[in-house]
Nucleic acid binder design. Structure first.
Lengths: 118, 118
DNA sequence: CTGTATCCCGTGCGATACTG
DNA sequence: CAGTATCGCACGGGATACAG
C-alpha cells in the first residue's frame, strides 16, 4: 500500500535522488535484473533465484515495484494459482543502467578475486 | 572504518548486488552526481548542496566512498583547514549510469508534475 | 502455489554537543 | 573550516506461522 511515488510531504532533491528511491533497497536491483534477463518469472521462481529472500520481503518488494510502475503482475485465475512478473515499459528504461552496474560490479568482484558467474 | 569492500562473511550474489551496496544508501548517489558535475567540492560546499544532511552522515558517507575508492580526498594543511573531494577514476566509470538515472529521474518527476532543475 | 499476519531486532540515520 | 562523539529511535528487514 505504501508507494514510493506517492509519499508526499518530503522534498524531492533531484532526479538522482528520486531514481535511487525507486530502485534502492536490498532486493530491487537484483529482482529487476533477473526479471529482465529471464523476460518473465513466477513468484516461486523468484524465490529460488533469490535464496536469501523471505516471502514477506519478496511480496513487499514486488508490490512496491508494481506500485511504482516498474514491473507488471499478471494473475492467472487457476488452481493452483499462477502469477507472472515482468519488467514494465517504464522499468525497461532503467535496464541499461542496471545492465552496466552488473558489468561494472562483476569487474570489481573479479579485481578482488571473487569471480561470479550470473 | 567500515568499508563495504571488506565486509567479508557474506555471500556476494552478483554484480548488481555488489554495485548497489557501493552506491546505495541515502546520499551516495547525490554526492557522486554533484561531485561529478562540479568537478571538485569542499566539505562545506557539499553541506550546502545537500541541505538535509548532517555532518555525521556527510563524513561517514564520504569515508565509505573513499574506502571504496570511488572518491578522492585531498587535504590542504593550512589554517583554516581545506579539504577537497572529487570523483576518482574508478568512480568515473559509474558516472554515465548515474547520468542516465538523473535523466530518467527528472523525466519521471516531470511526468508527475514536480519539475526540477538540477 | 502465492501469498498474509505477527512479532521482533539490528542498524542506518537524525539531533545535538563538542574539538583541532 | 572540517570534522568527532554520544545518544536515541524509526524503520527496513528477518523468522515464523498460517491461509486461500
Amino acid at each position: 500500500m505504501k508507494s514510493n511515488l506517492t509519499d508526499s510531504g518530503m522534498v524531492q532533491q533531484c532526479g538522482v535522488d528520486y531514481a535511487f528511491k525507486r530502485i534502492g533497497g536490498k532486493y530491487k536491483g537484483r529482482i529487476l535484473w533477473h526479471l529482465y534477463s529471464k523476460k518473465v518469472l513466477r513468484y516461486g521462481e523468484l524465490r529460488r533465484i533469490l535464496p536469501d529472500i523471505t516471502t514477506k520481503m519478496l511480496t513487499q518488494t514486488l508490490r512496491e515495484l508494481e506500485d511504482d510502475k516498474l514491473v507488471t503482475r499478471k494473475v492467472y485465475h487457476e488452481v493452483p494459482p499462477k502469477v507472472e512478473y515482468a519488467v514494465s515499459e517504464t522499468g525497461m528504461e532503467l535496464i541499461p543502467f542496471i545492465k552496466h552496474l552488473h558489468v561494472w560490479g562483476n569487474k570489481q568482484l573479479e579485481k578482488e578475486g571473487f569471480p561470479c558467474e550470473s
